[in-house]
């Protein structure tokens, strides 16, 4: 029992460290692949680490008349998302903190991070940053519920909202491929794109059309580093969440041998690489939707989540 607990704690520690490394790597990998797809050489794979390091070493300029909330938000958002990322099983499922938060609580943590970001943007008071908060609020209002509805469908199929249990359930072959799960996957993917300010919802370099960047306009130095790192963590959370629920294969289960976590790491790296390529392809191939269509997009994601849940609840009863 104690050995098991120590093992779980060790895995958890490993996981907390792993996500910190994996998140910038995933972001760097996506931009590298995207650059290659566009025929460019692109920034080096490790560039996100360099960017973060550079920002950490810089002075932080804090806008007049902002409150403690503005300076505390980067730390809180980062640690919230760090915790959230640490809760999603990546290479091994037997994590010590698993009972702290299930999938529903994970959505709650993401919501906390979003609310804090918006409040910090409102704290800067005016102009475009506040408009960024407005736009993010629209994403937030649509993303949270849509995600929960998709989770509803998945959780109903897997009889649990606990991520390790879900992964184990899939691994044990307890779930057959269903249409509803495919729709739920679609909904979760759409949300991942929206929540991470990725194409087709949003994308880098779009000036006044951006959602994601606008809220961090006034941040600088270490605060900005933490906000950017949190963004990378958010991307990793969504990617590993989808990987954990829909392709848990390769993940080390509590009973497996000592080599299993190593295999799990390899499998996780492969999954993230796959997710990165898919994301880069989506970004290169898609057109950014206008913000006036954002409501529709979110509505479709919500509908997809609903539909998945409805299909599932109908088919379960039959």
């Amino acid at each position: 029992m104690i050995v098991q607990a120590i093992g779980a704690a060790f895995l958890q520690l490993l996981q907390m460290g792993l996500v910190l490394v994996a998140a910038p790597l995933l972001t760097g990998f996506v931009s590298q692949v995207r650059a290659r797809l566009m025929g460019r050489q692109g920034p080096p794979l490790l560039q996100p680490f360099r960017d973060l390091l550079r920002l950490l070493r810089k002075e932080a300029v804090v806008q007049d008349e902002t409150s403690w909330l503005f300076t505390a938000t980067p730390f809180l958002v980062f640690s919230t998302l760090w915790l959230a990322a640490g809760l999603v099983p990546t290479f091994a499922s037997g994590l010590a903190l698993a009972p702290a938060a299930d999938l529903v609580a994970l959505v709650g943590l993401l919501a906390v991070a979003r609310v804090l970001t918006m409040l910090a943007a409102l704290d800067t008071g005016a102009g475009f940053g506040a408009l960024g908060a407005v736009r993010q609020s629209l994403v937030a209002v649509l993303a949270g519920p849509a995600m929960l509805m998709a989770i509803f469908a998945v959780a109903a199929a897997m009889r649990s909202t606990s991520l390790p249990r879900m992964a184990e359930f899939v691994l044990s072959g307890g779930v057959e491929p269903r249409l509803s799960l495919a729709i739920a996957l679609l909904a979760l993917t759409m949300l991942a794109l929206a929540d991470n300010a990725r194409m087709p919802v949003d994308g880098p370099g779009a000036g006044s059309a951006t959602i994601g960047g606008a809220t961090s306009l006034e941040y600088s130095g270490r605060h900005l580093a933490l906000i950017e790192a949190a963004g990378m963590l958010r991307l990793l959370i969504h990617a590993s969440l989808i990987a954990c629920i829909f392709v848990p294969w390769g993940m080390a289960l509590p009973g497996d041998g000592a080599l299993a976590p190593v295999i799990g790491l390899g499998a996780f790296a492969a999954k993230m690489a796959g997710a990165g390529v898919a994301l880069a392809l989506t970004e290169v191939l898609s057109t950014r939707i206008g913000i006036r269509r954002l409501g529709e997009y979110g509505g479709w994601a919500l509908m997809a989540g609903m539909l998945a849940a409805i299909f599932l609840s109908v088919s379960l009863g039959a």
């Binding site: 566009m38 025929g39 059309a209």
Partner: peptide
């Protein structure tokens, strides 16, 4: 086109 979110066309045109 890049502003409308098709970076591919933008990159090609820039070249």
């Amino acid at each position: 086109c890049g502003e409308a979110g098709v970076p591919f066309i933008e990159a090609e045109c820039a070249l």
